[in-house]
Amino acid sequence: MRPPSARHRRLAVALFAAALLPAVSPGPAAWADSPAVPGADFTDGFGLSQVADGTEVRSGTDFTITVTTPEVAGPHRIRIFLPSGYADDPDRRWPVTYFLHGGGGNVDDAAAAPALHSDAMITVVPDGGLKSWYADWYMQNTAEGAADWETFHLEQVVPYIDANLRTLPDREHRAVTGLSMGGSGALHYAQARPDLFGHASSLSGGIDFSMATVRATVLATELDLPGAWCALSTPSSQGCPTYGPSVDSDAIFGSPYPVLGADHRWNAYDPAAPANLSKLKNTQVTLYTGNQGLIDGQTAMAAHTVKNRLDQLGIPSRLVDYGNGASLSPQCDGSHTYKCWGPAYADYVPRLEAAFEAAAKN
């Protein structure tokens, strides 16, 4: 009897391996044109290189890729939620929402707000670090290494997503939203790049950098002083991580002290500064906050300051101060937690979807 050929040996191995794998339904015919592993066919570019073994697949519409970039030290994950119909219609393009997580959090926090996994849009959750504050840091030689987070997100992640997914790549179909630290990042990104984002929302955001409590929070993250902010801005199931290695108190925005203009970088970033708010004149702005507890008592003050200044500038906006949470959801107590942010996104996302749909008709 002749020994099996190399071709037959390869076939036998393939059949044996297939027998060990669980059966998977093939899904819609259109899925045949998509990669077996979502994100596997992404093409490097815009300074981003995908880590070959860094893809996590939860389903065909929920997966995470890992990338590296010279702008920010270390590998970084990007979680992506696709609409359930994404694979069914290969000619359709979709709006995109960028979700910015809070301090001490990570890209998996988005799962605590199920409304973000929408059938009407793509949601992209880029790693924002434990204390990035969504800024290009003043100091680049700290224990964190390179930390140009704003450049990473706005000049690399956004065009990378547009190049690799079927997006509608215009501001009317692109939103940025975030909570806590990510809430300030969302307003700042919309102000820094009004050409990119037509919609911005902040939930319980540290959005007024003139407030001593907000500046103190930034300093606490720089010095890795875990406290209430960390414990409450991360889903309870994930516990309270530290803010990473301690860095200089001037690392992100330079000196925080308003003496002889030493705090000019804080003021330039400040999402509540009238000069920055004026850049939102063509942006749909939504603010959510409770007013209970140590933290949301402060974010409520910041949100009302921003709302009043937008009103003075004649810029339409929507503020939802849900107070003790009773008007929002039975599970919300008005505090700085996903018990409130989850319902807040359940209120916000349908409104955002309607705005995207209206823009598509124009």
Rank of each mutant, 00 (worst) to 15 (best):
54 G>I: 00
52 A>W: 04
38 P>N: 07
23 A>W: 14
47 G>I: 03
44 D>K: 02
46 F>E: 03
14 A>G: 15
19 A>E: 06
17 A>V: 14
13 V>H: 08
34 S>G: 09
49 S>M: 06
27 G>E: 02
11 L>N: 08
11 L>V: 10
35 P>A: 14
59 S>Q: 07
51 V>K: 02
25 S>G: 13
26 P>R: 11
43 T>D: 09
38 P>D: 05
42 F>A: 01
37 V>N: 01
43 T>L: 11
39 G>R: 02
8 H>W: 09
13 V>Y: 08
59 S>V: 08
30 A>P: 06
16 F>A: 15
59 S>Y: 09
15 L>S: 12
13 V>S: 07
24 V>P: 00
31 W>T: 11
8 H>V: 09
57 V>T: 13
57 V>P: 04
41 D>L: 06
27 G>P: 02
27 G>D: 01
23 A>S: 10
18 A>H: 07
61 T>S: 14
52 A>T: 14
52 A>F: 07
13 V>P: 00
40 A>S: 15
34 S>A: 15
25 S>N: 11
55 T>D: 03
32 A>S: 13
21 L>E: 05
37 V>H: 06
58 R>H: 14
57 V>R: 09
20 L>E: 05
45 G>P: 07
38 P>E: 01
9 R>E: 09
26 P>I: 09
53 D>Y: 03
49 S>F: 04
8 H>I: 10
54 G>T: 03
15 L>M: 13
29 A>S: 10
55 T>C: 08
46 F>C: 00
49 S>V: 11
33 D>A: 15
17 A>D: 08
34 S>T: 13
42 F>P: 01
24 V>E: 12
46 F>H: 15
31 W>H: 11
33 D>T: 12
9 R>Y: 03
21 L>F: 08
12 A>N: 07
59 S>H: 06
10 R>D: 10
23 A>F: 12
54 G>W: 01
10 R>M: 09
47 G>A: 04
58 R>C: 02
18 A>N: 05
36 A>S: 13
10 R>N: 11
10 R>E: 14
58 R>F: 14
44 D>Y: 05
40 A>G: 08
14 A>D: 07
